[in-house]
């Protein structure tokens, strides 16, 4: 099955949105959730999730704590912070502005 690379710069948006929807998740769950919700169209190079999560930790958009998975494994769970929510709104409106503009350009043709 063919999968599309996600557009550059939208990874943060995807993670933020996913976390906003589902409360707290660990890395593997986030990766799966993105794939599933996009009906397997969006392909995240799964590893690249982790540098992005690190950056979001530094920025204070998410916080992390160690918890236990249903399969009784230790896992690091991520969860949105207030700053993260604000960031999500910011990125969303920016994304919509860009997509809107692109759509308009395409439809002009």
């Amino acid at each position: 099955m063919h999968r599309d690379e996600i557009p550059p710069g939208t990874l943060y948006l995807l993670i933020l949105k996913t976390l906003a929807r589902s409360g707290e998740m660990h890395g593997y769950e986030i990766a799966n959730a993105i794939q599933r919700t996009s009906d397997d169209v969006l392909q995240v190079e799964e590893g690249s999730l982790y540098p992005a999560l690190q950056r979001m930790l530094i920025k204070g958009w998410v916080r992390a704590h160690w918890g236990v998975t249903p399969g009784n494994r230790r896992a690091r769970y991520y969860q949105l912070t207030a700053a993260g929510r604000t960031q999500l709104e910011l990125e969303l409106s920016q994304f919509e502005r860009v997509i809107g503009a692109i759509t308009r350009v395409i439809q002009m043709a």
């Binding site: 660990h26 890395g27 593997y28 990766a31 799964e46 590893g47 982790y50 690190q54 930790l57 530094i58 204070g60 998975t69 399969g71 494994r73 230790r74 896992a75 690091r76």
Partner: peptide, 27 residues
């Protein structure tokens, strides 16, 4: 937070490694 990371560099590396191992095993 950056300074915390500087201070806890070793723990950071261990955490990341564990996280990645979990990911690979689950997959």
């Amino acid at each position: 937070r950056r300074l915390w990371m500087l201070w806890h560099g070793r723990q950071f590396d261990a955490d990341l490694e564990e996280e990645i191992r979990l990911h690979l095993e689950l997959r």
